[in-house]
Amino acid sequence: MDLPVIPIFYGLDPSHVRKQTGEFGKNFEKTCRNETEACVYQWGRALCDVSNFLGYHSPNWYNS
């Protein structure tokens, strides 16, 4: 469908998504508890890729 995707990191630092650290990392580990190592790797890789896209980090938004 060729729809654009723009990640929005609301109340979340994109580096935590990229590296699966902080509170995000804890929740990621819980989510992946019953998954295979290959699946966890694929998800982690996808999250890393998404966090490297041009997106919006909520603390950087201008409030007018």
Rank of each mutant, 00 (worst) to 15 (best):
N52F: 00
Y62A: 13
R18Y: 08
P4I: 03
F9N: 15
K26C: 06
N63G: 08
Q20F: 06
L12H: 12
H16S: 09
P59E: 11
Y10C: 14
N63C: 03
H57C: 05
G55V: 03
F28K: 08
Y41E: 12
V40P: 02
F9Y: 15
P4Q: 09
S58Q: 10
N52T: 05
F24N: 05
G55R: 06
K26M: 09
I8R: 13
P59Y: 02
I6M: 13
I8H: 15
T36L: 15
H57N: 08
G44I: 01
A38S: 11
G11A: 03
H16F: 05
R18L: 02
T21N: 04
N60Y: 06
R33Y: 02
Y56N: 01
V5S: 10
L47H: 06
R45D: 04
E37P: 05
A38Q: 14
P59S: 02
G44A: 00
V40Y: 01
L3D: 02
Y56W: 13
A38D: 15
W61V: 12
E37S: 09
H16A: 05
H57V: 07
K19C: 05
R45P: 00
I6T: 09
P14N: 10
G44N: 04
V50T: 11
P14C: 07
M1L: 10
S51W: 04
S51R: 09
L3W: 01
S58A: 15
Y10V: 12
R18I: 00
Y10M: 06
D2A: 06
T36D: 13
V17H: 12
C39A: 15
L54A: 13
N34K: 15
L47W: 03
F24R: 08
K30E: 12
D13T: 09
L12I: 14
L54V: 12
P59A: 03
S15H: 11
T36S: 15
T21R: 10
F9G: 13
W61D: 10
Y10T: 08
I6L: 15
E35S: 08
S51V: 01
E37N: 09
K19W: 04
L47D: 04
